[in-house]
Design a protein around this nucleic acid. Sequence first.
RNA 1: UGGGGCGUCGCCAAGCGGUAAGGCAUCGGACUCUGACUCCGAUAUUCCUAGGUUCGAAUCCUAGCGCCCCAGCCA
Length: 567
Amino acid sequence: MTTNPLQPTNFIQAIINEDYKSNKYGGRVHTRFPPEPNGYLHIGHAKSICLNFGLAAENQGLCNLRFDDTNPAKEEVEYVDSIQADVRWLGFSWDDRLFYASDYFDQFYHYATQLIRAGKAYVCDLTAQQMREYRGTLTEPGKDSPYRNRSIEENLDLFERMKNGEFPDGSRVLRAKIDMASPNMTMRDPALYRILRAHHQRTGDKWCIYPMYDYAHPISDSIEGITHSICTLEFEDHRPLYDWVLEALQIYRPQQIEFARLNLTNTVMSKRKLRELVEQGFVSGWDDPRMPTISGLRRRGYTPEAIRDFCERIGVAKSNSTVDVGLLEHCIREDLNLRAPRAMAVLNPLKVIIDNYPADQVEELTAENNPEKPEMGTRIIPFSRELFIEKDDFCENPPKKFFRLAPGQEVRLKHAYIIKCESFVKDEQTGEILEVHCTYDEGSKTGGPTSARKIKGTLHWVSAPHAIQAEVRLYDYLLATDSQSNPEDAIETEEANDFKDAFNPKSLERLANCMLEPSLQNAACGSRYQFLRLGYFCADLIDSTAGSLVFNRVVGLRDSWAKAQKG
RNA sequence: UGGGGCGUCGCCAAGCGGUAAGGCAUCGGACUCUGACUCCGAUAUUCCUAGGUUCGAAUCCUAGCGCCCCAGCCA
């Protein structure tokens, strides 16, 4: 109970504030997150989770987790487990309020008989095909089912026999008696119960009739004392039915509020499409780091904090929108910049030999772990005569403003010395640069007498004899469409018969021969680092082991040089 | 030609009759032993269009236009 309404941050909070004023729910705020356990949660669900749990928390209210398990044909325990893990990982708690719509099956049944007694529901024997024909079209009214005026006694008898398994699947349904001529298709005597012999993961074979969403949802909300039942826009047309059910039953009435679901550029967000990617092998699973699923983002290296921040920044409204994935990337960079320790890793190694450095000498250099946070301490990095630098950091014929290594050019090695490129060895057949020879300025070591010299470029590097070889996986967008410059095309491609035509064949690039600084040897699975000048990387939760490290690139650092080169 | 929604900067999004917040992106510049971070500055005389009401409109009225959703015994 709050006495000072919050400054509304979105239209739903504004409604809550109004409800406080009118004392609609006695000052209570009670929401729920009601996933159907038929797939993995994705970033779109995260928006809903943050909204529901967030609104409850900010208004000193409660939020339930409720599985909408009314269709056993599609639902599996694997999904209920993953959903709970994901919600928890995102940082939300439902305490002891974990519910299942199936908890209420007896109650639903009882209420249904009540509707029949009130003359508001009837058993209909029309086939699915016939029902479709009787329903009419968007512009023409439907016509009454010939079974619409059965007696209450007959309906009661038939419904009970439906429950008792006396009729085959699909042979009859229980329907609400509303209005076959309603301009709202949802109100044309919608089905409330169907006969379906499917084993339910929680109720087993107790039932052979299962309630429909439109019937089960309002009652579940009512039973749980939900105040604000938040759902997505496509249910707007269902709101009159939601209200009708509760009104007909004369039970407590929550209010349904709809908001626009999240769409993200360069990816897909429907469970159907995500499942296709998984089942047809486009990705390795629901948790493939390219997937916009919570488990995929987690494996990629995203933090719950970044995802929550993202959900706050995108806002909540009713207009269909597609958020630029760049905002998500911004959120994880901002979070990891402050938290991730730095390390040096070379993805595409090029040998550098410091000709005037003693062959058998090894120095232990000190490097800060995070310049943003001195309290994160320092670590030791070995330096020796032979190093690896990034192939991209050397150029035989450098373009203007190339502040990296090139013949005759000087560059600073991070935490170490200033070196100068004297010569290089090139494979004349392939044109590949094989090694680069340099000399170093002995006094230029970090902290040394000539270290303050102005040098434009600083490179990351790894001591060759000390380097740890590792695999690094670079990810790009799932869909290659550039919806920014050509939104129409993107939508067409994505919605085409086969959105997979837009699948980005370069969405995964594996680099097996990367060289890491030795401090990374004990990187724990899931630990995140900023590889200097490259981006943020996360030791893979599944494939990385001490003997064979595997890092995923969470997101690259912003790169104004690359951008300038392109433009 | 039915019903329900939505239309404010490239992408999100505030605004609710008093003279266009903020974020992302973009473009300049400063700083820099990460071309990162940070910092400074720029960026809608205009709110889908056209009329109208008003001293005053993105906000009210009228008429259009555009986009999304609905004809599952899915959710």
